[in-house]
């Protein structure tokens, strides 16, 4: 029983979150205020979709380092459509999501058609997306976003931002997709043992393309949330997503080689990371610690994983 519980990631994460929550509640009076919780949840929304975006590529055993660049491109394209062309919000957002999925699709096709390592492909496409982004904006953001969008970005019900709705829906949908649909199962089967999946009639290449497309779609979602939240289309949206996108799934126990991801544990890892970030602000610790701690947590997760493997194998 003991070892079984150790097998799952979420209990340890839940304990860590509870401890962090308790500590902050006890030491910082500002922590439990409605506004602080609202601020905390706001940054949680975007991070969650970023983490899910990487999680879907990890599920099939791929890496996607273009998430941030893709997000930045989607944000400024959607922003540009609304500001310069006066496209209605719904259409612009749909176009943004479609663009994200398309960019991911391109990543997936390049990976499966050329057989080149996913890391190199997405490193290259990241540079291409960044280039297009800079070409459109010349580094100048689109400031005039439709009022309705900005209002949605700041609207809240007590401590709950409306922005929380899309990522929570995405989490539920993703959990059901991965656990209960045949495509979702194929995704994990390809990640777990590509040969076995292929011998069982799973179309491996198409599944990898699907995972990349989904990853692009989710990254686009994160970018559009950031757009709504900031009230302007900044070309720098996404520039700091890379480490976060890997940190959350890995802390959530995702196997880097593919075949295993956990929506719940990834979400909890994002909660933990958001809590740490918020805690550092409240305790007036140098914000530079965030970067340091992210790296440290990933290494700790890797070490923990190793320990667990040693215990399972050598014990």
């Amino acid at each position: 029983m003991n070892t079984r519980l150790l097998e799952k990631e979420w209990p340890a994460l839940a304990v860590a979150i509870a401890l962090g929550f308790g500590f902050l509640a006890a030491t910082s009076p500002a922590f439990l205020t409605e506004f602080n919780i609202y601020v905390l949840l706001r940054s949680f929304c975007i991070s969650l979709l970023v983490a899910f975006s990487q999680m879907t590529t990890l599920a099939v055993g791929q890496l996607n380092v273009s998430i941030g660049a893709l997000g930045g491109l989607v944000a400024i394209v959607a922003g540009g459509l609304m500001e310069k062309l006066g496209v209605p919000i719904g259409v612009a957002l749909a176009a943004g999501l479609a663009l994200g999925a398309l960019c991911g699709f391109v990543n997936g096709v390049l990976v499966t058609r050329t057989g080149i390592d996913g890391f190199i492909v997405t490193l290259a496409t990241a540079s291409v997306f960044d280039g297009i982004n800079l070409g459109i904006t010349k580094s100048i953001p689109f400031y005039k976003m439709p009022a309705a969008l900005v209002a949605f970005g700041t609207a809240r019900f007590h401590a709950l931002p409306y922005l929380l709705i899309p990522p929570v829906l995405a989490a539920i949908a993703l959990a059901i997709f991965l656990a209960r649909t045949s495509l979702g199962r194929y995704l994990l089967a390809v990640g777990g043992n590509p040969q076995a999946a292929e011998l069982s009639g799973v179309p491996r290449a198409r599944i990898i393309v699907l995972a990349h497309s989904l990853s692009g779609f989710l990254a686009a979602g994160a970018a559009l949330l950031a757009l709504a939240q900031l009230g302007s289309a900044q070309p720098t949206i996404g520039s700091d997503w890379l480490i976060l996108s890997f940190a959350a799934p890995i802390i959530g126990g995702a196997a880097l080689g593919g075949g295993y991801v956990s929506v719940l544990a990834t979400a909890l890892a994002v909660v933990l990371l958001t809590l740490i970030q918020n805690g550092l602000v409240l305790e007036q610790v140098d914000p530079f610690w965030v970067e340091f701690l992210l790296g440290g947590l990933i290494l700790a997760a890797v070490g923990f994983d190793r320990l667990r493997a040693a215990r399972a194998g050598g014990g």
Partner: peptide, 27 residues
């Protein structure tokens, strides 16, 4: 001779992977 199973899947799912039984669009 080589193992052709998905390690993180259950025994049942490995056996049924070729044709996963569906109900209302879900496995």
């Amino acid at each position: 001779q080589e193992r052709n199973l998905v390690p993180r899947f259950t025994v049942g799912e490995n056996i049924a992977l070729e044709q996963l039984p569906m109900r209302f669009g879900f496995v």
